[in-house]
Design a protein around this nucleic acid. Structure first.
Lengths: 201, 201
DNA sequence: TACAACTTACCTAGTGAAAGGTAGGCAAGT
DNA sequence: ACTTGCCTACCTTTCACTAGGTAAGTTGTA
C-alpha cells in the first residue's frame, strides 16, 4: 500500500484530485466568462497545473465543458430529487427549498445562466445539452405540479404544463436579476410571492 | 444638392447608411455569439466594409457594443411608451402587447438575453448598462402596475415592487425557453397564463 | 522481495491561427 | 485646399493545442 503524504500518493488518488481541482476551476471561469471567454491557461493555473497538464486530463476545452455540465447536472438532479422526497407531499415547500439552496451557490447559478445564454445558438457545443435539460426539467416539474394539484396544494384550474413553463421562467429570470444585484435582490422572497399566486385558496 | 445615385451621394448620407448597416450587422453577430464571440471582421463584411472601414465609424469593438445597446434601448423605451399610451388604462393588455411584439423579433430578444448573461461579471463593458436598465425597467413597471391596481385591473393585495420583479423575471425566463425552442414554445400564451394570475378577480 | 518493463502525470518549448487594432494612402466629396 | 470614407498591408497579442521528455508510480516475473 502506498503511503499518503502529499507528495507520494497513488496515481489514482492524484488523478482524482487533479480532475476535481480542474473541474472546480473550470466552473469558476466558465461562470465568470462563459465558455468562449474562459482561458484554459487560467483554469489550469487555478488548478495548480500548466495548460498541457490540464489537457492531459481533458482532451480539449469542449470536453472539459461537457464534463463540467454533466457532472453538475448529475449532482443537481440528485439534490432536487432529495429535496422532493424530504418534503414529502409539500411540493411548494420543496420548490422554495430549491430556490433557497440556489441562493447559497451564486457561482453555480451563474454557471448555468451564462452558459445557457451563450448556447442559444445551435452551433454551441452545449446547445443540445440545454435543450434536453430544459425539456427534462419541465417534464419533472409537470409531475410534481400535477401531484400538488391533486393534493389540493396548487390551484387546479391551470394546466400543469403551463405552470411548469412559468416556474422555470421565474427561476431563471429571478436568477438574472439576483446575479446582477446580489445585495439588493431577495430572490427567495420574490419566489415566495410567486408561489403564493399558485396556492389553492 | 448632391444627386442620389448609389455611387455618388453626399458624405452625410453615406455615413448614415454605413453606420446603419454596421449597427444592423453588429446586432446580428452580437446576438448570435455575444460580445466576446462576435468578430469585427464578420460584422464589417456583413456591412459591406473591411475591418478598418468599420473602425473608421466606431473607434473600437467596445464603442460599437455600447452604441448598439444605447440605440436599441432608446427604440425599445419608445415602443413600450407608445404601447402603454395606446392601451390607455388597460395595463395588462399593454404588457401582453409588449410580449407579442417581442415574439416577432427573435434577433433583438436574443441580443439582450445573450448580452445580459455575458455581462453579469462586473468587468464586462455592458455591466453597468444592464444594472441600470433593469432598475429603470422595474421602476417603470412599478408605476404601471400600481396604476392598474388602483384601477382594479390587477389584484391589489401584492406589492407592486414584488410584481415588477416577477414580471421582469417571467419575461426574461420565457425568452430563454422560447429562444431555445422557437417552434415548440408559445411565449405569448405562457405569458398570458401568468397575467391571468395577476388579474383582480 | 527485487528489479526490469511499463504506464501515467505533468512539464518546457513551440506552433499556427485567429483577432483587434494601427499606419498610411488614395479617391471622392465639400 | 481640405476633409472624409474606406482600403491594403501590417503588427501584436492571445490562445488552444502539439511534441517530446522526465520522473514518479505500477505491474509482472523470478
Amino acid at each position: 500500500m502506498g503511503n499518503s503524504t502529499p507528495y507520494r500518493r497513488t496515481q489514482t488518488e492524484r488523478t482524482r484530485a487533479s480532475r476535481e481541482k480542474i473541474l472546480q476551476a473550470a466552473i469558476e471561469f466558465f461562470s465568470k466568462n462563459g465558455f468562449r471567454g474562459a482561458k484554459l491557461a487560467d483554469i489550469a493555473q487555478a488548478a495548480g497545473l500548466t495548460e498541457p497538464g490540464l489537457l492531459h486530463h481533458f482532451p480539449s476545452k469542449t470536453h472539459l465543458l461537457m464534463q463540467v455540465l454533466d457532472e453538475r447536472d448529475r449532482i443537481d438532479k440528485q439534490r432536487v430529487q432529495m429535496i422532493l422526497q424530504q418534503e414529502g407531499n409539500h411540493v411548494l415547500e420543496a420548490f422554495q427549498d430549491i430556490v433557497n439552496h440556489n441562493a447559497t451557490v451564486p457561482g453555480l447559478v451563474q454557471l448555468f445562466t451564462v452558459l445557457v445564454a451563450e448556447s442559444l445558438v445551435a452551433e454551441h457545443p452545449a446547445h443540445a445539452f440545454f435543450v434536453q435539460r430544459y425539456q427534462r426539467t419541465r417534464a419533472s416539474l409537470v409531475e410534481s405540479i400535477r401531484k400538488a394539484q391533486q393534493a389540493g396544494e396548487i390551484r387546479a384550474d391551470l394546466k400543469a404544463e403551463d405552470l411548469a413553463i412559468l416556474m422555470t421562467a421565474i427561476m431563471d429570470g429571478l436568477q438574472v436579476q439576483w446575479l446582477l444585484e446580489p445585495e439588493t435582490m431577495d430572490m427567495r422572497q420574490a419566489f415566495g410571492v410567486f408561489l403564493n399566486l399558485l396556492k389553492a385558496k
